[in-house]
Design a protein around this nucleic acid. Structure first.
Lengths: 180, 180
DNA sequence: GTCTATATAGGGATAGAC
DNA sequence: GTCTATCCCTATATAGAC
């Protein structure tokens, strides 16, 4: 099994159970590898697995959403395309966000800086496009933050209410709220 | 030690570490009681402790925010007062919300219905005031949901960015967005 | 690279003295 | 009501064979 394949199989486990809620036994079952084999790929154990998954997810997000935002084109179109990427990325809100997952308990202790850096990166990329669209820099940053907060909040609601509509609504309204 | 006193001391532990991240050892230290003494107050163990804390927090929220919303008076003023209660309740965003905490991993398995019911109660109460203010019922429900999502999202950002401004901003703008 | 077997620590929970 | 001592289980992690 390739390392990437292993990473791929670890994702849903961490997503569903959170960092502390995911045991090596679960990760072993999820991958089909024995515990000891997991340590072959991830000598640092569970924390390395989580960190690797986090980075992998981040690079996936970079390839879709951030790539879209950084490309050429009309800001409004780029934002619309990015929203569509976000919908896929979060599977209409059914996928929890690793930023939120990793911001609690022991995961927060281990990965706080990493998580913060990723969130700031997303905010910056989004704000940049708003500036391209003629919005003042400080306003742009605030709108970008609020947009990401809306997404995070919608993910919480979807999880609790078992209903993807709150997420769909946020995505629907996002371009308008970002561009004013 | 009274049971209420014990509950009170359990709160910050669960808030900080989440359900699975909080061990009986932590809860023992937080209360100053031995593990066995905790079982005197909570025979159901950790899950009963968490459920009791969740209900306690819910009743606190009922006494402040929901009470304000259900009282007599101008809808706009009630909403403004409720927002102020929310700011205190979440300590400007420094307190995580138990709805979010309990919506992951094992806690979700144990408490999903309880959590969902509480969230729906909050949405209904908020929507009711909007209807009083002359807003159409379906719109009111959606706005109430979105408002709570914004709060939840802001709490995530505050945690990760170590900055309460996203939360303050949401609270500031909430009455306006709710009433249109 | 994957396994079985195991080490060691900590988890939740209980018994029973006081 | 609170404690000490303990039970059993699962957790993470490692050793070493194949």
């Amino acid at each position: 099994m390739s390392k990437e394949e292993a990473i791929f199989k670890l994702i849903p486990a961490f997503r569903k159970h959170g960092y502390e809620g995911t045991s090596l036994t679960m990760l072993s079952k999820a991958t089909g590898l024995g515990k000891a084999s997991l340590y072959h790929y991830f000598p640092g154990g569970k924390s390395e697995m989580a960190a690797t998954v986090f980075d992998y997810i981040g690079s996936e997000l970079g390839k879709s959403v951030l790539k879209t935002l950084q490309g050429e084109g009309e800001p409004k179109l780029k934002i619309q395309a990015a929203c569509e990427s976000l919908r896929e990325f979060y599977d209409s809100g059914r996928n929890s966000c690793f930023l939120a997952i990793m911001s609690f308990g022991e995961a927060d202790k281990l990965f706080h800086d990493k998580v913060k850096a990723r969130l700031e990166l997303m905010i910056e990329n989004l704000a940049k496009v708003l500036v391209e669209a003629g919005i003042e820099k400080e306003i742009a940053k605030i709108r970008a933050q609020d947009a990401i907060a809306q997404i995070q909040g919608a993910l919480v609601l979807v999880r609790i209410l078992d209903d993807t509509k709150p997420f769909e609504r946020v995505i629907e309204g996002l371009p308008g709220r970002l561009l004013g």
